[in-house]
Design a protein around this nucleic acid. Structure first.
Lengths: 236, 236, 236, 236
DNA sequence: TATGAATGAGTTTTCATTCAT
DNA sequence: AATGAATGAAAACTCATTCAT
């Protein structure tokens, strides 16, 4: 919410934003209409609202209010509340998969690669709470909105390829067991990284311990890496 | 209302109430004036609706319609939509913890006990999707409703005690490593059992594989037991 | 409200109530059914609720809750919410007129009698806020409920007779002017005594001075007596 | 909402707004999009309903029906039933105080000024029954809504200033007694003017005489002026 | 491209009253 | 005489969306 309202008054900081600079280049101090910026602004606010309140809990009015524009524009660009929600999903899912490709674990030793993958997954979930929440929300709705996000399925294959590659190389070197399914392993890693973020509130009130607390963060990270490596390693 | 919710619990005692006995005598299962049955009926329907639609998505009218009573009774007994939602949470959280106590893992060998605990946790989540969904929904609302459920915090301690006991005995016999935190371990087990149920829809559409499919079920169960045991076992 | 709940548990004081004593006389420690007491109890609570909330603002449930009985009894004895309201009016109007007759101003010198009447009127309104509020409420409803209170009209004639008598005697002695209408004079006295009680809340917030404050009470009393006497006195 | 209520006031300036001018040009009095008119219309209808039925007795639907708009707009502009009620209070209290300032009693001889003030007060209450009823209603609610009307307290000081001025000048000329408190005097004048309007129904049924009848009106007006002047005049 | 006003259908909640025991 | 459960009709309020400017 604060983030949202901050975004609405960047001109008070004195620091010219990207778009402001672009404006300046073209010679006008304040562009009146900037569709891209407007859309981006709406999406940002919507991401927060949807991830905070859920699809049904989110209020179109609430989103519009924290936006630089009006409600009408929201419909102009995204057609409907659901359309906006889908746009948010699209953006958010795009981000994580894009990052995963930058990992280059294929250049690492299998064990190190596996560790890097787990740590990346951990860090991503730990930081991108909006993503975690939105996935959660999607599941409440039976994933029927991501299904319509065209780019969704393709993107997920890459992780599996990464894991397949790691497993194959680890088996070859005798470091990893050979009876593992890559998708199952991905599920395992996801589980460990996701749950502590997604359900941190109930966990926190149940055990008086917030799993997202910085002190626990490091311990959990190490624990999860440890658990996964123990799981994939070949017994000797 | 307090009187109401208290009165709602005696059915768990197994001792039939006076009215229940009177019913039995007459042989009719559906009496017109049966507050306990009315409440139970409302709670059941509400559990389904809330877990299917979320707190904001659920419709009081929809719940009432599928009930033997009218919408009015829902307010009569539970005060408000939120009150009903909380009653559902209370019931659902009560169920799992009650079952956990029936496990009697303290009578088993540490490794067997740990396996039994993991298998129980797995099975419970696998079967009680409503529970999983409701926890998810609670987390979207920052757990603010479960916080108000008085019995909630106390109930959760028991799992931790069970794990503490298992760990202590396993350490004593040299089977388990001694550097584990029981709450962290509980989090790990929960993660593995929860995620595959709670996020099965996005997982399903992402990888074309429904993790709740019976064939995968057994494999996941074994995998999770395996992973946890590898994690807690002492290296030699 | 406090008064109400206190009335509901008089047995905790240890001081036997009138009815309890009556019970004792008859030899049973606690009478189970006492229709008169029940009715009285309901009326008392209803008087408070109606005077505090108005006819439309009052809640039958709220009244029933603060009663020793249940809502059903309220309908049993008074038929409806309106019936109960009327019963309250009847009781409350009966009280003031009964008291007025005890004044015996006819035995006093006209000026002293007038002063006594004004002081009595002042004191009554000052103390019986419930009465004042109920009159106010009745006027919002166009007095349509008092109209149905049979004893209502007759009761009011007595005040006018009292004033007529005072005026006549005062005129005879040359103390009072002869051009006054008794009903108008009654209206004037009522106005001065009623307004400061009935509208004390708006008056209080408007001028930061609560006209029902004890310190102001005496001043207002003297002022009103003064004003009335100056008004009725014959100029010389 | 703030923007809305601010925008609602410029019509008192007498300067026609742009849209009003545009209207005039086209010659149509009822435009489809005219927020000011919409708000004014709602307020007018609401004033009647609230004053006739009280806050709890008033029906939002009933107000909406007699409006040119729908119920929704009522919430759009005033937020809630209570919000609308408060807006009504604000308007109605504003009116009387505004008029009082137009009296210019400071230019009159103290006795004439006092008479003018009393007559004004009398006439206002006699005509503005809605105002009287609403004040009555507010007092049933302990003035808690008027308390929240920001402009309320400030407005009331002006009457007191007027009275202070009159008293000071009257004392200086030797026409008025010097022992009077201006707020008490205001209370007295209000009492006399308010009661006969506010409680005319019970008074009417009690004494078979409607104090608001035109024939009584003049007599009461003279009587009250007389009473007040006798009260403030210095004895000689 | 942008805006603020407007809307209808729906959603939660309340309330006086009655029924079965 | 007394009770707590039950009820239907109505009331307040909300929400995604569209219209006029």
């Amino acid at each position: 919410m604060k983030k949202g309202s901050k975004a609405a008054e960047p001109d008070t900081t004195g620091i010219p934003s990207d778009t402001a600079r672009a404006d300046a280049r073209r010679g006008d101090t304040r562009r009146k209409y900037d569709p891209e910026q407007t859309k981006r602004n709406i999406l940002e606010v919507a991401t927060q609202e949807f991830s905070a309140m859920g699809l049904t809990g989110a209020r179109v009015d609430a989103i519009a209010e924290r936006t630089n524009t009006t409600k009408r524009m929201l419909y102009y660009y995204f057609g409907s509340k659901e359309g906006l929600y889908q746009a948010v999903l699209e953006k958010v899912y795009g981000d994580i998969r894009a990052l995963e490709q930058d990992l280059h674990v294929s250049e690492l030793d299998p064990v190190d690669g596996m560790q890097a993958l787990v740590e990346f997954t951990f860090d991503y979930h730990d930081r991108q709470r909006d993503f975690v929440r939105l996935v959660t929300i999607e599941n409440i709705h039976g994933a029927k909105y991501v299904e319509q996000v065209k780019t969704f399925k393709g993107r997920n294959v890459t992780v599996i390829h990464t894991i397949e590659d790691l497993l194959a190389r680890g088996i070859a070197t005798g470091q990893f067991r050979s009876d593992l399914d890559p998708i199952d392993l991905h599920l395992m890693i996801s589980s460990l990284c996701f749950h502590r973020v997604g359900n941190r509130h109930t966990f926190g009130t149940a055990f008086g311990r917030d799993p997202s607390h910085p002190r626990l963060r490091a311990r959990h990270r190490a624990m999860i890496v440890d658990a996964v490596l123990r799981f994939v390693r070949k017994d000797d």
